[in-house]
Nucleic acid binder design. Structure first.
Lengths: 179, 179
DNA sequence: GGAAGCTACATGACATGTCACCCAATCCGA
DNA sequence: TCGGATTGGGTGACATGTCATGTAGCTTCC
């Protein structure tokens, strides 16, 4: 009982090589996430989400970013970010500050304490990344790995449901599917 | 003010090539996780964690696995798994059943409904993986990507804090740091 | 310039995950 | 074979994430 006697609108399954690659990816993602979380929590009293937020802000001009942009960059729900910033600001790591250009909008701003926490946490985190990710990796594979990941990233940006980060988030007229 | 005037016990920073690779990895991980979650939730009423559990069980003999082994395989805390299985069993997707070999232990067992849910969800998920991950990837890079990910996985297994999956979880005597 | 609709964000209720601690079964050495 | 240490798992309190909804500011178009 073939699912479709008339030929293939049915998507083809993954090839064995693709499946192997995918499983490897998932395993790395699960374990590495666990280890990163654990290390940051233990050594720096930061969760991995905390760390991601701090990094995104530190990487932005004036350590400041509007919430929607930050959420997009992190691939978070906005309400998650809103809750999370509330907790982080209670700990003094970030502040909320009204946007200069849009009175609806709020910017998240890195505080000095937040920057200090990031600075303190970074070496240990980097060290873990090097040990867990790069030290076991054949250096000859590095360029291919990077290119592959960048291709995948681009693909997710193009076909995913989230807007491209750092892009105006407004829906542009005339781009809806024709009616 | 160099951090260490006497030479480098200070870990070297990542090379630019490594940093680029790492950022690409993190971006893929964040966005792809978001998209997978969303797709499964929308199309199949399963979260990505649900799906991971179902897959792990379906992939085990008799659709049955002891909790600790399952937790290790998923890189989850055991208590998280315990809570999660409670919810999944309330939905009829899995059952708990006492282990045959260890009276402390509990096995998670896939129910027929669980297997059916997995079967129903898999094509859509696979399709998303193919579109988001493989369709934008130069096939020539696939073998290198796979090898690289497998090397990283092995590295995380060796240097991580979790036991290797499918391994006896007992701490072996004589392996403690010497006193 | 004003109504309709959209965007930015907050919030409260609820789902999920973590942490500290619990007990029972097993293991191991004396 | 007894006793402590270890392991397997559960649980309740609390931290975190999601969903539905509310409000205010922006934009568009007449």
């Amino acid at each position: 009982m073939s699912p479709n006697p008339n030929g293939p609108p049915v998507p083809p399954a993954l090839s064995p090589e693709q499946q192997g690659t995918w499983f490897a990816y998932m395993r790395v993602m699960l374990r590495l996430g666990y280890e990163m979380n654990r290390q940051l929590q233990t050594d720096s009293d930061l969760s991995l989400p905390d760390f991601d937020v701090l990094n995104a802000l530190a990487d932005s001009p004036d350590g400041r970013l509007q919430l929607t942009g930050l959420a997009t960059r992190l691939a978070w729900e906005r309400s998650r970010l809103s809750h999370h910033l509330q907790r982080m600001s209670a700990r003094g790591l970030v502040e909320r500050s009204p946007s200069a250009t849009d009175r609806r909008a709020t910017d998240a701003v890195l505080t000095d304490a937040g920057r200090a926490a990031l600075t303190a946490a970074t070496p240990g985190h980097t060290d873990l990344v090097r040990r867990m990710f790069f030290d076991g990796l054949d250096p000859a594979l590095l360029p291919a790995l990077r290119t592959a990941l960048e291709q995948v990233h681009e693909q997710v940006l193009v076909h995913g449901t989230l807007p491209r980060p750092g892009q105006p988030q407004r829906r542009l007229p005339g781009l809806e599917p024709a009616g």
